[in-house]
Write a protein that binds this DNA or RNA. Structure first.
Length: 125
DNA sequence: TTTATGACAGACG
DNA sequence: CCGTCTGCCATAA
């Protein structure tokens, strides 16, 4: 096993913690890790991640499925998995980030339906 | 060893 | 508001 795997393990750990129906951005995960990794590194880690990892719960900070840049087929897989978890889309390749972004510090494990949604200028594309 | 390339994010004009 | 550029850092060639 290489040493880099060890660095990725912290990234994987956070990804595994993301509750169903919620997401984190690459930058969020990078900020959570003590290793001082960058958002790009998180992307790299996910590109070689184990299959059992819920990688589909990681999107970019705008909520876009930027994996499409790499493979539109994988992007479709991600979309279907998110839809299956009840994630709401605002565009074909973009979810409602304000609604589904997970706050690890919050004790709540599930999204609260009653939560007031923040008014945000989500510029679609 | 050097160069190029991203599943990103933030700054700039 | 929007397209570009730049910093970031692990891999591949």
């Amino acid at each position: 096993m290489s040493k880099t795997k060890g660095q990725f393990s912290e990234i994987y750990r956070w990804v595994r913690r993301i509750p169903r129906g919620r997401v984190l951005s690459y930058g969020d995960i990078a900020a959570l890790c003590r290793s001082g990794v960058s958002a790009r590194t998180v992307g790299w880690a996910l590109s070689v991640c184990p299959d059992d990892l819920p990688w589909h719960r990681v999107v970019n900070y705008q909520g876009r499925l930027t994996i499409g840049r790499r493979s539109l087929v994988l992007q479709e897989v991600q979309r279907q998995r998110l839809l299956a978890e009840g994630v709401r889309f605002v565009a074909l390749d973009q979810i409602a980030m304000d609604r589904h972004r997970w706050n690890p510090r919050s004790r709540a494990k599930n999204p609260r339906p009653t939560a007031r949604k923040r008014r945000r200028k989500a510029s679609a594309r």
